[in-house]
Structure formats: C-alpha cells, structure tokens
Amino acid sequence: MSNIQLAFTINRSHIDDSGAELSRRQQQYSLGVNDRMTVLDALEVIRRDQDTSLMYRHSCHHGSCGTCGMLINGERKLACLTQATKLETEMIELQPLRNMKVIGDLAVDPSPLFPDFPKGAAYIRRSEVNRDGRKPFELDHWERFEDCIECGLCVSSCPVTESFMGPAALAAHNREIINRRERRGELLGEVNVPRGAWPCTRALNCSRACPTGVYPAKHIAELRKKIEQDGLTPAAEPGEKRAQ
C-alpha cells in the first residue's frame, strides 16, 4: 500500500477558566499516510509522534459514538469515517464544528445538543431486519438502537440563525412520536412553539450532513404535517416562507 506525504493544517486554541476560547491559530503537521488511514488515524499518529498536547474527541473509530465530528476541508464529517487520501488534497484543513463551543483545538462541548431532546425518549426501537420473520419466543420484537448517534453534524450545519431547537432534537421528537403514539399530543405541543418546528428553512444541510441516515429535515417536515393534521394553530410562519 502506497504511502504519501500530506500536510494537516489544524486549528489550535485553548480556553481560560471561564471557558472562553483563547488564541486561535493554525498549526501545520506533515505525515505519511496510506490509503486505509482515516483522518482520525492520522490525528492519532500526529498526537503520538509529533504533539501530545493536540486535543480532539474520539472513541469508537467506526462511526458509532458520534464524538469525532469536525470540519474537514470545510465539510462536516466524522474523522473516523473519512479516508485521508480520498480527499485528494495535499493539504487537509481541520477545524472544530461550528455552532458549538470549542474546549480546545478540534474538541467541542456537545452539551448544547441535548436540552431540547424529549424527556424520557426511547433509545431503542424495533429492528427492521427480518421484522416479520421468526424470532425467539421470549422477544416481542428484535431490538435496534435509534440511528441518531448525537454527533451534532446536523446542528453544526444548520443555517438558521434565530433561536431554534435544531434538527437533532426535532428529529428525536418525531422519532419518539413514531415509537410511542401515546406521546403525540404532548410532543407536538413541545415543538409547536416559535423556536420549535418553524424556523427551519428547508436548506436540507442537516440531512446531507447526517452520517447515519436519520434525515432530520424529513422529520421536521413530518412534525409540521402532524401539527396541521391535529388541527393545532401553528406557532409561527414556516422559516422558508419568511425567508422568501
């Protein structure tokens, strides 16, 4: 397997005691990579051999934990699923996700994602694999984790600038309504507020950024439809109408 030399230009910054970001600058590293290596693999080698102070989030290395989202050559991606040579640039620029608070270098604080998630939402759904086929007599249905890995790429990609619950929390509301029909009224009430399902301008950035195929924009559209179906008065005009 061939080894080619790539330059990595990486955002460096740190914070003070109050959490404010200080001294943002770019630092360049050079590394030989093979075709198999991901951006995360490269960061691991750079940290080990060149700079042990480099900060980035990572855990599973296979797109399941959602911690390693970052801007790679300006695009929102999971570093662990992005093969470095496939980017076909000699220099790879790495920046922390936008719309999130940086805690250092490429690492962001994911906590703003969660306050608007529905309380008590299910984390496990029915599996669609062999759904109607035979299953063990002890199980009502085969189980599967919800697809959303809470990586924040959708929130980071959203162009809406006004106060907004954001695509991840809204998708979670619609998923919970699908999983538990009895919560429909309660959860539609939560999203039928000015900062709920309405500010979305249908830019669809979120659905394009999502690495696990959740398509948050589709869920936002479904929420709006359900609000209409249930005869509720929309709490605001849809964002795309206002944008026209």
Binding site: R57, S59, C65, T67, A107
Partner: peptide, 14 residues
C-alpha cells in the same frame, strides 16, 4: 488524558 472512552472501551465491537 483525552475524551472519555478514547482508549480501548469505545473501540469495543460491542
């Protein structure tokens, strides 16, 4: 030293 479960735990096949 890094993010939680960034050593062996997170990379578990599950």
């Amino acid at each position: 030293r890094g993010e939680l479960t960034s050593g062996t735990t997170g990379r578990h096949h599950g």
